[in-house]
Structure formats: C-alpha cells, structure tokens
Nucleic acid binder design. Sequence first.
RNA 1: GCUCCCGUAGUGAAAUGGAUAUCAUGCCUGCCUUCGAAGCAGUUGUUGGGGGUUCGAAUCCCUCCGGGAGCACCA
Length: 608
Amino acid sequence: MIRETIEQAIRAALEELGAPEVSFAVERPGDMAHGDYATNVALVAAKKLGKNPREVAEAIREKLSRAANHSSEKSSDLLPAEGQTFLQNGSLRFVDKVEIAGPGFINFYLTDKAVNAAIEESITAGLAWGSAARLKERWLIEHTSPNPNKAMHIGHLRNNITGMAIANIAAVSGVEVIRDCIDNNRGIAIAKLMWGYLKFARRDGATDKDVAYWFAHQDEWNNPQTLGMRPDRFVDQLYVQGSEDYEHHTESASTVRAMVVAWETGDSVVRALWQTVLDYSYAGQAMTLERLGNRWDHVWHEHEHYQDGKDLVEAGLQKGIFKKADNGVAVTDLAAFNLPDTVLMKSDGTSLYITQDLALTRLKREKFHPDRLFWVIGPEQSLALKQLFACCEQLGIGHFDDYTHISYGYMSLKGEGKMSSRKGTVIYIDDVLDAVKDEVRTILSAREVSLRDPEQVAEQVAIGAVKFGILKAGRTTDIAFDAAAAVDLRGDTGPYLQYTCVRARSVLARAHTEGIDPSLDTSAVAVPLGHVLRQYPEVVSLAFVELEPSRIASYLLELAAAFNSWYAQVHIMDGTSAAAHKLALTQATAQTIENGLALLGIPVPEEM
RNA sequence: GCUCCCGUAGUGAAAUGGAUAUCAUGCCUGCCUUCGAAGCAGUUGUUGGGGGUUCGAAUCCCUCCGGGAGCACCA
C-alpha cells in the first residue's frame, strides 16, 4: 500500500520530467540505515535524460515536494486521499524524510506514526489480512503423492512441507486452493511389493507359497504388529526384497508380471492381496502425514483412471496430433514446443505415466474447473512435465501456461551423496523426527521449567526444527542434509523462533496478571523492531508471487533477532506509561511469528 | 553427444542487476539479584578460473574447470 503509493508518485514525477516509460523498483533496502524504502529510479533514468543520476534524483525529489504543496490539507495525515498525491509541506505524508544517497538512490524514511499504524494493522489482521490484490482464482496444487510401496524419506518431506507451505501462502493471499495428490496404487511396483510380502513375510520362513495358499491361510503371514514394526517400514522392506527377487530370478519375475495381468482382469484373490498390502502402507503413511499436519482435499487413485488415457492417445493419433512409429509405439510431435518427443503408449497398447497423466489432468479440470494447476514435484521430472503440459494443450485440455511445475532442490546426505535404499542410506522422516525429539527431551529435562505436557512440546519443537531447517533454504537450493546438525536447536532454527514467541507470550501473560494491557501508541518513537514488524504483509505477498516459502522463513529470523535484541536492551514493564506500548510491540511480535510459522506449517508450543 | 540446474567464509545457507556481499554455526571473549540465557553483545573468516555487457555483476552473456539431473516403449 505504502510502496504502491510511492511508486505512483515517482511515476507521476517521471512523466513531468519526460521519461514516463522508465522501469524502476521501489524496494526494501538491505540495510535499515538506508530507510524503509529505496528506489533506483534515478540510476535507471539518468541515461535517458542525459544527466547524472544524482541530478535526476534531485529533480525527482523536487517534483515530489512541489506536488506536496498543491495537495489537500484536510485528508488524513497518514495516507493520501483518493486520487491525491501523498506529499504535504515538502515531505511525504507518511514519509519523514527523503534522502539521496550513494550513486543516486532515493531513500524514504517512514514517520513513526506510519510505522506504528502499520503494526496495528498487522496485529488485528491475524492470518488473513485481506490482500488488496485478491486473486479470484481457483488453484489445484498437487503435492507429496507418496508411493505406497515405500516408507517416506526426507525427499518426500521436502515435497510435503514445500507444497503445504505454498498452498497456505496462496490461500491466505486470497486464492481458493485445492490440495490434491495421486496415489500410484497399481502396476509393476505394487506387484513387486505383493510378491515380497507373499514370499518373505511368512512366519515359518518358508518361501514357496503362492497367492491361493495365502488367501486360505492368511494368519500364517506376519504383520507389522507381530514383528513390532511400523507398517510403512514393513512394506518398505518387503518391497526391497520383492524387487531384488524379481531382478535375480526369472521365474519370480514372470510370477510378478502374471500378477499384474491377474490384477487387471480383476482376479479376486490377487485383489485381496493387493488390498492387504496397500492397507499396511496407508496406515504407515498416515502416521507420518499426521505428524506433519498434512492435508489433502482430494486423493486421486491411479486404478480408477489409468485406462482412460489410452482413449486420449488414440484420439490424438486420429487427429494427427500424435504419430505412430514404425515399432508400433505412439509418439508425440512437440516440435512446435521446441521439446524432445516422448513415447505416449507402449507398442503392446499399455499405458505409461504420461498416458495416465493426460487422463488425470482432464479429470482434474472436469471435477474442479481450476484456473491454474500446479505440480509440486522434484526437478528430475521437469522435462516430462513440460511434455505433459504440451500434449494437454494439443489435445485441447487447457493451455500450456495454465500449468506450472513447482520444482525443489535435491535432498542429499552430507558426505554420502544421494540417498540409496540399496546402500542403506535412506533417511526416513520419522527417524529424523524421533532423533530430534530425543534431543529436545534431553534439553527439556536439563532445564528448570516444569511443563504440563513435555511430550507434546518435544514433538512440536522437533517438527519445527526439521521443517524450518528445510524451508529456510531457497526452494530450488539443493540441501546436503546433516543429521547431526538437524538436532542443533540454536541459531537460525525453528526452535529459536518458537522460543522467541513463547518468551514474548510469557511476558504478555505476566503483564495480564498485573493488570497492564498492551496498547499501541502511534506517536511513540519507532524502534528498529517496529520497522521490521510492519513488513510482514509485504513479505507474505512476495512469498506468494515467487511461490517461495523461504521469504517468510528469512523474515521471521530477522524479526526474532530484532525482538531479542530489543528485549535485551529494554525493560518492558518498567512502571511507566511506555509499558503499554512496549507490550503492544511484544504482542505484535508473538502474533506475527505465530502467523508466519503457521504458513510454514509449524506449530508454536504453549510453553517450552 | 545434446538440454537443464548448481558452484558464495572451515561448515550450512541469504542477497529483485544496486549502496560496505548478509545470517547462522564453528573458534575466542563478555552478559542472568529486571519481565524465560534454546537468549544478547563482541571477535575471526567468503563470490571456482578467465573474458565480455553495464554507470554498477554473486546475479546477465561466452569459455574453461568441478558437481547434479534429464534425454522415446522405467516408475
């Protein structure tokens, strides 16, 4: 709001100076000493106007103050009235001073009143402040989509928390968000899992039983309870065993392929086995997803639509959009999109991922009529997704630009490189959470404070540490995950933010018992903390435009640092009339941290 | 071979083409008889190499070196 007003005024000044088409930026300077806003307009316009940048800056400042003298006296002294400039008596109405600095930057310093008033909005706005640029759009955001043949590891974690955070940020920015995922619950991978279970989960260790025998003697097979395992780890292990057996024994491989066919024809015994292993998998995933606070509005199950894509490919072939290669496969023709071609359907007429995704994308549009669709998926799928988007456009299923791949960086292991289940270097989400939780328990037990529910606090702090550790990095930055560093709860961490929030609340609680209420004084001198506090809505807006949760993470660290630094210097309840205002700043800090962490999917414990 | 991504203090990261390249951690040093020390304050140390564009480059272009991913019947 303030920034837009400054932009408009500069635009008007540029027109007067005869350089209306110059593009410039009004942004937050990296250093607070350079004011609340800074613009490079003079640097950009200098060449066009044939003057040096500082002369141009001076001329723009001159125009701004000239406009001020013509403005109305009766409007608010904080913000300009509709259609009016924002200057008054030579200074911006909500700007204290305008300085020209460095090579020709124009720096704007807000008045104390403007800063304090902006904080007040931040306090009352809460989670949804009602974005001025409210998008009347519906977005479908597909994220996480865990494969039911594996336990979720930290790669899935990055997908989940990134997708959830972006969905939260979009929702609070006025978009109607639908979160969905795809359950790839059929095909050769699931058959390998079924085979692993059939062959390697027998209680007596025998490995020669077939599916019919299993159906009649199900109690002879192990289950997660009898082994004392989590169901997802039970499944994960059997899938690895089944896959290895598939690769090393040709007769096992043909049995597995036969199971795929039997499943497709609806063989009731195979379907029963299928349901049994999937149920273990879902139960295990649910345990992890619940800890993470995951939520979907809709889950697509592959077995419900996987056949439909073939019709789309056939239709495309008939229209000449796709072509048939000599070897019988259906192939794309993506020269118009400047993309390499890919196979759409195998020569035996069976489907591939892209075949099903064509059908699913059509299904998504038919069911939800979204304006835009997003896929939160790793970078290795980048080309495949572009090909999908292009094929959809060719088939008349929306437009290429309706579709966005939200990519993210790889999770590697520090010193080990890529995770590998074969090398045993996969790090499971729950193992990380449990390790961090143990560390939190150790810290808690060493402290004096007695907690009502230490177990819940440990869980919330562990979640905060792990999620924040990933979200503070840029979305596309590769992360070398360091399990040892993950349990460090000091410094730029989630627990640091949680602690800051809890401590601020503790002061507020004490004030409440002493009968002192927070009350913002707009005439109070704005401290650096206040200048940081008021930026929250702008930061969320930036995070939304860039689909970049780390913007919020970085901001919260800056805010917490500003608060803690301030807190160490001042005595809040000092018995003077200033106490209420300082409490208001404390309350605004606690509220803003809580709101920001909520967007990142991180809870704040009541105490810690 | 072709395409895409990445290379920033010892380590992990930040920086919309902008001002003195930030922050954390690590090492070292102070601060709890005022509201929570998971805190605060101080100290140390950085853009892979070479060209180019620009008033200005970690950022854009070229090239070399190093790492990762993808490239038609895998999921």
